[in-house]
């Protein structure tokens, strides 16, 4: 990744400094042994994942593999039966009691507070339809973090400019295209200054010609140094932007590795089959 000019406005408030000597990449997200069942159906069968600060991880795999559930477990939109999640060293949702070694659920207040460090963009129906674009973006900073409204609005306009939607600040979401709505959703999540951004198939519900603008915004975000986990079917994005690709199937991580290696020479047969269709069409 290139470094960014430090005084240019950035999508990321506090980017990790690339190129500075560091002992080891500090882990931003650590998931350990997450098991999640919906009734009798075990959707996540013990998933462990570590994401370093500034790293972009793309999760791919067939439908029903548990990719979406994985993201939803990180910020406890879904409850999980086993495992822990930490973001930047702080536990989310469950903490381990030092005496008993058992995990205990954090209070709802703590959970809500810890969600501020994680941003997530969903596939559709993201924005609040009864608020304007600007109101959508400032609602959480003002009311959850207590940021003064003027300051929140200034930052909101900055973010809108960076995703290329400055002129839409006063519009209602219904007047925006799907691609524009998703870009606003990204700006809204960023307004909370998260340390980690997650994207759950954010372009899957879009018309093909709108996909590009959203991927471009995500690419810019990656360049600015944001730690990202992206679930997507857009293989070109995975190949070009990811630092690491994770392949999931049947509730477990089957294989992970750098994009060049995964696409050219996957170690697992299942991954090879999955990527074969893409490779055949685009001949890397």
């Amino acid at each position: 990744m290139d470094d960014t000019l430090s005084d240019a406005p950035s999508l990321v408030t506090d980017p990790p400094v690339i190129g500075a000597p560091q002992a080891a990449p500090r882990p931003m997200l650590t998931m350990t042994g997450v098991v999640k069942s919906f009734g009798a159906n075990q959707v996540l069968r013990g998933v462990s994942l570590s994401v370093a600060a500034g790293e972009v991880v793309v999760v791919i795999g067939p439908s029903g593999s548990g990719k979406t559930t994985l993201l939803r477990c990180v910020n406890l939109l879904e409850d999980y039966q086993q495992g822990t999640v930490t973001v930047d060293g702080a536990p989310i949702g469950y903490r381990i009691d030092p005496r008993s070694g058992q995990r205990q659920r954090m209070s709802e207040r703590d959970i809500a507070a810890s969600r501020e460090t994680i941003g997530i963009v969903f596939q559709s129906y993201n924005l609040f339809p009864h608020m304007t674009v600007l109101q959508n973006i400032v609602a959480a900073p003002v009311r959850v973090k207590g940021v003064p409204r003027a300051k929140a609005e200034a930052r909101a306009r900055e973010l809108l400019a960076l995703v290329g939607l400055s002129d839409k600040a006063g519009e209602y979401p219904v007047r925006l295209s799907g691609g524009q709505q998703q870009r606003v959703a990204i700006a809204r999540a960023l307004a909370m200054d998260p340390k980690l951004m997650m994207f759950d198939e954010v372009t899957s519900a879009l018309d093909p010609e709108l996909v590009g603008e959203v991927l471009a915004a995500m690419q810019q975000l990656a360049r600015d140094g944001m730690t990202m986990i992206v679930v997507t079917h857009e293989m070109s994005f995975a190949r070009d932007v990811a630092d690491r690709i994770v392949f999931m199937e049947g509730g477990v991580i089957v294989e992970e590795g750098k994009p060049e290696q995964m696409f050219a020479a996957p170690r697992t047969e299942r991954v090879r089959q999955f990527l074969k269709r893409y490779n055949d069409r685009y001949r890397i």
Binding site: R72, E116, L127, F128, R143, A185, A189
Partner: peptide, 8 residues
């Protein structure tokens, strides 16, 4: 989900 994810 969106509201909860924003920490509300």
């Amino acid at each position: 989900d969106a509201a909860r994810s924003l920490g509300m």
